[in-house]
Design a protein around this nucleic acid. Sequence first.
DNA 1: CCCATATTCAACCCAGCAGTTAAGTAAGGA
DNA 2: TCCTTACTTAACTGCTGGGTTGAATATGGG
Lengths: 119, 119
Amino acid sequence: MPASGPSLDTIFAALADPTRRAILGMLLEDDMAVTDVAAPFEVSLAAISKHLAVLATAGLIRQERRGRIIWCKLDPEGLRSASIWMQGFGQFDPIDLDDFERFLLAELETAPAETPGQS
Amino acid sequence: MPASGPSLDTIFAALADPTRRAILGMLLEDDMAVTDVAAPFEVSLAAISKHLAVLATAGLIRQERRGRIIWCKLDPEGLRSASIWMQGFGQFDPIDLDDFERFLLAELETAPAETPGQS
DNA sequence: CCCATATTCAACCCAGCAGTTAAGTAAGGA
DNA sequence: TCCTTACTTAACTGCTGGGTTGAATATGGG
């Protein structure tokens, strides 16, 4: 009883944006404040704030205020229903994590319009 | 060497629409002609035709003309890159196919605005 | 050849989303 | 208290996406 969280609509729509996927990739390494998340991107802070709201609504991240800083952390469970849905199509070989690493790097290199990952 | 097909942008965006996911669910059982795919839905045939084009562009289905009928068939490989990407977040327990079945049914029941699955 | 079937194309409408800037709120620190 | 830091909200813009209808294309059958 995963309590049927956010809809698949919401989750997949959230994942459809390269900026948001890049953010998830960043949060995979560490929790971050909103400002720090925004730093590598060229878009405004407000835009990133909205992206984070979308990700939170989709249940992919959680935001927790501590002092005046809002910490963003990945919520891997949020991907669960989407993952289950997808696994239903095609019985792939068990996923190799190295594959993921490669994909993530490729994603970051051919990034939106800036180079998140650079300082 | 997955030949880096359609982008994750394209794939996730395709999956973000409930009508399109319903179509994928239908094609999971059998290949279908465009007209037959459209039948259960309330939207126009042209709309479904567009949805199918989106799915094809995303590499999730393949369309093959035979006579005057265009057959649509699922292309599970199209989900591969997206699946790999997602598996990178959160090491879930190995997916139980029954889970998928339940999700698919739930999806179909609370369908877009019509009842695909009805004749 | 002509008509019906199967599907796409074209032109258009409307809603929603990503982006902007500017103002608003919240919380430390001097 | 006042300023600064950390975010969000509001109002607006431009583009894309899903929907429509109606015409165009392609193919099989009588």
